[in-house]
């Protein structure tokens, strides 16, 4: 049963603390089955998400850590709603930022 549910999921959440899911098929807007640590739950996705891309599984404020694999992968540059595409347009890297050196960052 669990195996069946697993194959039906269209996106994966990889850590308990994660606020993003990764699409494992191309996703159209609508209710989408997402595999969380404790089973499959539906999340309403509000825009098309390409295979391999991420969307928020809960609302994220501006300047909030983005968590995947249970680890910080960057920081939001604007507020992100549940179901919204999470990528370079709303997330910045915190590392290797030569552009911020000497600017108090």
């Amino acid at each position: 049963m669990a195996e069946k549910a697993k194959t039906a999921a269209m996106a994966l959440v990889l850590g308990e603390k994660d606020n993003v899911a990764t699409a494992i098929v191309d996703i159209d807007p609508g209710e989408v089955p997402v595999m969380f640590n404790n089973g499959v739950k539906k999340v309403k996705v509000n825009q098309p998400i390409q295979y391999g891309h991420k969307f928020a599984v809960r609302d994220v404020g501006e300047d909030e850590d983005i968590i995947k694999y249970g680890e910080v992968i960057g920081i939001s540059t604007k507020a992100i709603k549940t179901g919204e595409h999470v990528h370079v347009h709303n997330v910045a890297s915190k590392r290797g930022r030569g552009d911020l050196e000497g600017k108090g960052a």
């Binding site: 295979y51 991420k54 990528h87 890297s93 915190k94």
Partner: peptide, 13 residues
């Protein structure tokens, strides 16, 4: 990035 990786942290993990 086109493949869905957003930051170096995500790529590294």
């Amino acid at each position: 990035i086109a493949g869905g990786l957003t930051t170096i942290e995500e790529k590294s993990l």
